[in-house]
Amino acid sequence: MPANDAHAHAESPALRVQFDTEAQQKDASTLGMWLFLITEVMFFGGMFLVYTVYRNAYPGIFAIASSSLDVYIGAANTVVLLCSSFTMVLAVRAAQLGQRKAIILFLILTLILGGIFLGVKAYEWNEKFQEHHVPGSSFHFEGMQPDEQAHAQLFFSLYFAMTGLHALHMVIGVGMLLFLIRQAQKGRYSAEYMTPVDLGGLYWHFVDIIWIFLFPLLYLIDRHLKG
């Protein structure tokens, strides 16, 4: 165990002064990331709570409003996101093996898939604007009474709040990928030191999992009744 920081610095450039060993540093970073993801679970948990309360209050309206979403686009986007998680896993694997070029390749693939997801999401949102399904003064849902309009608007409020927050996390994820790609190009990551890629992977999978919950909750309500 190094007695002081001068020692510690001499060992490895990536080892920060507050840590004794690289294993300790990696452990700490990983634990930190997991804790961060727990805070994210609580964060989205609040949203899911609100969703549960109002879907329970207005089940019929939520089902009708949900059926106006395009389930095929949603499903396609789900596949895109799952593929991006797969390429992210490959990037982490490449980092563990110290294959620099493979890291970059798979990170870029992940980036592209993430970009496609966001692009499709933007298209869907744009559609909502054209259909007047965006909450606000111009909100209108065909074939509903005024008081039901309000409840349909509640569905779309939650739709935008939840997919919006998810998309925000995706955007942050994209920024993170850009950073990782740049660092990888500089040759910062090796089999010995690849913690940032590892943590980036955790974050990316988390954002993916959130979508796995969002998709059925928003797109698939009562879908089985319609066949």
Binding site: V50, A57, Y58, P135, A150, Q153, L154, S157, L158
Partner: peptide, 12 residues
């Protein structure tokens, strides 16, 4: 945006 999450007049 007055989206109705907590507004009783909009069902919140």
């Amino acid at each position: 945006f007055h989206i109705g999450i907590f507004d009783p007049t909009l069902g919140g």
